[in-house]
Design a protein around this nucleic acid. Structure first.
Lengths: 335, 335
DNA sequence: CGCTAGCACTCTGACTCGTCGAGTGCCAGT
DNA sequence: ACTGGCACTCGACGAGTCAGAGTGCTAGCG
């Protein structure tokens, strides 16, 4: 159904529309892309492409623009991923060099992604899962409340407050000691395992406190990859000021909903490589006018990505996201 | 120079312009505000007000709009702060009730402020200064790096990574013990004092590590109120889509710059009560088309506030900010 | 002296209208 | 299977018009 020329035309339409931001017509197409056929022929092909749902007309007698389906075909079969320029590689290196702790790494990554792609960047905190436990602290705040703190080998600190049920400080100290003895040095997976049998070692009177604490630890260690995401580059949305009322507001709202972002990133990365989700393919309705390019990184289940208009330069964006993901991954594993 | 009627007219212009969002003319003014004089008289007064710089015309033969100076006068002398409605009070209570730890309090506060005022909310983390030290931990990550963690009585956890210069674990443990013995229970002020003489108690071989750690602690305890701010309600900016290109982009950019926000909030609150900074009064140029309404809270040096267009409902916004600040303050001190 | 009524004037915003150009679909011809 | 030509559609754009809102000024009134 779609011979080579039709595919070439689709490719041309996509690239042209992305760079020119205007519906593209048959004449402009043959002029700019050396198709060696006449506009009329191109028109016939375009009619077919339109019938198949790959492109559409904003109104009669305007050029064509790609549909979500068209972008999809383009991404899957037509857009060779561009390698990064040397300058970009260098930018990544210098930008990330000298990051202090994990917070800093995440912050820098967001900035970097946003800056290179000129879009909105989202980075999820790396999962605890990959790192090993460095310390567990339990610190009482009031007689009734305490803070459980877990530090891992990447320098990430996670904390939850709990109800102690009035347990005495001595019991807390003891529990803390036991937990450290049992867990420090273990990977998250091992630590989870160990926690499973941990309660039984406790004296009965310590059990109730132990249960609460263990529950939090399990939550921190095992649960979601991480419940925190960082967003950056929001000002880049201003480039779509034209479509503002209809498009940008819901996007902004979505970007404030951490939960949504987490789900989004989570669902995106199944393949282990860069994933693209175009417009309507997106499960979350307010984002259906945008595309997401995401990738897992740090060989864990944490993800990063960018959100932009469906009309985006996929090859370059995908290349950038992949490169950043790899670089950050390497950076994290080397410490 | 400005008799009562002129002030009344200015007040009317401000309130009308804020609610109608359109330049207001003499006729509409007498109709809506029962001024008991004719439009012509109002016009004369308006001419004076314009000469004095309180109002201006967007173009010949349009209504008048307030200038920054006009808003300033309004805020200082004309706008009685409206008390909150019962519904709003209730909203605050229910919204904040059940907050878990300090992160949660801050998050909720941002949401709350953004929602009630329908503007962009900024909340600074409460200062360590008011709370007392609960625990100090030093946890080594690599032989060369460690994490210093300070927990205070509000449940706030702050961390910094440091270079240990290869100090042995035993030295770290000892230092940790001494620090806790010396600091726990002290207010930040006292703790700072104590830290002053702390180094001398150490064995000479521990000094170098001690210096680094103390430096970080001083930074955490004494430095800025807090280096973290949280922003929310950014989608509310979409209501100014009209002025988007010129106004909203720089604002968005400013909102991503934590440093800028911190300085902004810091400078705003000298008086101890709600402070208003209108348009050009603002030191940071990209925000000169906005107004800031801020207030310290939790009787510390932490601040919260909202950023909105200069054309804003000051009485209500000020009332809301004040109420939220008080409520959160009370909530924090009660624990 | 302060207020008011009336008037002439200005400017904007909305509306209409005609033109132009880009782009299409179709058909007949190569 | 491709191309050239043609009639057609539609949006963008500029000019022209018009009504309405608002002003400043001046002369008159209590």
């Amino acid at each position: 159904m779609l011979d080579d020329r039709k595919l070439a035309i689709l490719r041309a339409i996509v690239t042209d529309y992305v760079s020119m931001r205007e519906p593209v017509g048959s004449k402009a197409l043959v002029e700019r892309y050396r198709l060696n056929v006449s506009p009329a022929t191109v028109r016939n092909d375009m009619a077919v492409l339109e019938e198949e749902g790959y492109i559409t007309q904003p109104h009669t007698s305007a050029g064509r623009i790609p549909t979500d389906k068209g972008y999809r075909l383009f991404v899957d079969r037509l857009g060779a991923i561009k390698p990064l320029s040397a300058a970009e590689r260098r930018a990544i290196e210098t930008f990330m060099a000298g990051a202090l702790d994990i917070d800093d790494v995440v912050k820098r990554t967001v900035r970097l992604l946003a800056q290179i792609t000129q879009q909105v960047a989202i980075v999820q905190y790396p999962a605890m899962a990959q790192a090993s436990v460095r310390a567990v602290e339990i610190i009482s705040l009031t007689p009734e409340r305490a803070l459980v703190i877990l530090v891992n080998s990447t320098g990430h600190v996670e904390q939850r407050s709990i109800e102690t049920g009035g347990a005495p400080d001595s019991a807390i100290a003891e529990l803390r000691g036991r937990l450290n003895a049992a867990l420090v040095g273990l990977s998250a997976a091992k630590a989870l395992e160990t926690l499973g049998g941990f309660l039984e070692q406790l004296r009965p009177e310590d059990r109730s406190l132990g249960t609460v604490v263990c529950a939090v630890l399990v939550e921190i260690l095992g649960g979601e990859p991480s419940t925190r995401v960082v967003v950056g580059g929001v000002p880049n949305l201003t480039r779509f000021a034209d479509q503002f009322e209809t498009t940008v507001k819901p996007v902004l709202e979505a970007l404030e909903e951490q939960v949504v972002l987490l789900r989004l990133l989570g669902e995106a990365s199944s393949s282990g490589d860069v994933t693209v989700r175009i417009g309507r393919e997106n499960p979350y309705e307010p984002l259906q006018s945008t595309s997401l390019v995401a990738s897992p990184y740090g060989d864990s289940w944490a993800n990063l990505g960018v959100v932009g208009p469906t009309r985006m330069d996929y090859p370059t964006t995908m290349a950038t996201v992949r490169a950043v993901a790899r670089y950050v991954g390497r950076y994290l594993s080397e410490g």
